[in-house]
Design a protein around this nucleic acid. Structure first.
Lengths: 241, 241
DNA sequence: CACTTCATATAGCGTTGCTATAGGTGCTAG
DNA sequence: CTAGCACCTATAGCAACGCTATATGAAGTG
């Protein structure tokens, strides 16, 4: 059960901590557990890492290296904004694959103390956004864009982590991702139209009715569609308000 | 320094915990600090609240009540989307004004365990988005929109909390907020290129869906309605390939 | 060999969340 | 008035925590 080999104690501590952190299911991991698994006593830990957080930072640094490395390998596509998209997805993927490690990195939030790893992640994203800016695809300063996107990215990942695996809906991520990228990009050609009005059930039903007839949606079979339209007609001719 | 008056110990514990939590600057607050300030001994705490987390949950519940109350008071403006905007801002404001309380509510993340308060906040936002959906202003199902917006909202707030107060840039919040709201709304793509945005069918279906759930129309029997809603759901979640 | 330096161990401090047990307090029943 | 009962609170202390003062061993250098 212990981590032996003739590896130096420092390495054994790192592996023990990473292993326990990965298996613990988010529960707290004590220094005693770590030192015991590493086959080492307490002072050794504090000699090498200062304190518990120092150890965790070291573990996180290793995890982040892996994260960044995968990031950079994939980087060189022609489209900077497409790279950002992939960066977002890998961020989420990393968080869901190693939730405990991710939470040590991004979930350990305290006021006025920003973990170094956040700044690193921000720098990485900013660097990529810079390319987009050079290409004239950015409508916002890269720094602000990076912070904004990263904030949303972390928020989404944290929310997905709190969900039980089977229920996870990655659509949430994709949608938020595209919203953020679209918002900072220059491709928007918005034109706020004169909208309005309230549409109660009847109006909505009428709109749907018209829209359905005009488009060839294949979400419903023809027999289903027929019955659907009949009900729709019933609703839209009723006088609810 | 102690909380006296002749208030019952349960109340004193709540106030002591809330007070310490607010002042502690994010540092951990111990049960001994709390019980001492409340002028009470340990077993009293555990008799009333079960454990430390139970106490904090109670404090959070109170804080959330305040949060929701302020929310609802401001709610009734004409424009649902404007209400969402204000909701976002109040969320951020609440987080920055009481960071410690906010972190207990939203920052205490663990895998597979979603705090009840998150679900409540999500429900509150979904409720508001429903109004927007009824008005035909939503291009996405309210549930998904709520989760997405809330995720980004929490992410931004957490990021702002980690910054030291003087450096806080609320532009980050405003920008992310508008990006998310814009993304779920129908105001985009009104003049519309080929593949920009959802088709009218989808928008109408979403609006009708929300409207039907809001007003109990009796034009359809319950079994018919069930099937009808199922089809509607199929349409409104279809991608605009 | 003496001396320094680095690395690990022994033992224990102070604090944490929590609890087994017992004692008070106020109520209703006889 | 007293007996019993349910509720609430206190005394005292356990096990686990992060961490450290101090000591011992090993390795290299003059």
């Amino acid at each position: 059960m212990s981590i032996d080999g003739q590896l130096p104690p420092k390495t054994r501590l790192l592996r023990a901590a990473a292993g326990l952190l990965a298996k613990s299911g988010g529960a707290a991991v004590s220094t005693r557990q770590i030192t015991q698994l590493a086959g080492v006593t307490a002072p050794t830990l504090y000699h090498h890492f200062g304190d518990k957080e120092g150890l965790f930072d070291a573990v996180v640094a290793a995890g982040f290296e892996e994260y960044v490395a995968r990031e950079r390998d994939f980087a060189p596509s022609g489209e900077p904004l497409e790279d950002i998209r992939r960066m977002w997805d890998q961020h989420v993927h990393f968080g869901l694959k190693q939730p405990e490690l991710y939470l040590v990195m991004f979930g350990n939030i305290r006021p006025e103390s920003r973990p170094a790893v956040v700044a690193d992640a921000e720098a990485l994203m900013e660097e990529m956004l810079n390319k987009a800016a050079v290409a004239g695809q950015l409508a916002v300063p890269p720094k602000e864009a990076a912070r904004s996107i990263l904030a949303a990215n972390v928020g989404v990942t944290l929310m997905l982590i709190t969900e039980k695996a089977p229920e996870r809906n990655l659509e949430l991520s994709a949608m938020t991702r595209d919203a953020m990228i679209f918002a900072v990009s220059t491709e928007q050609a918005r034109d706020s139209g004169p909208d309005s009005g309230k549409s109660p059930v009847v109006v909505a039903a009428i709109a749907l009715n018209a829209a359905l007839q005009a488009s060839h949606s294949d979400q419903l079979s023809s027999s289903e569609l027929k019955l659907f339209l009949e009900w729709l007609h019933r609703i839209s001719t009723s006088s609810t308000s």
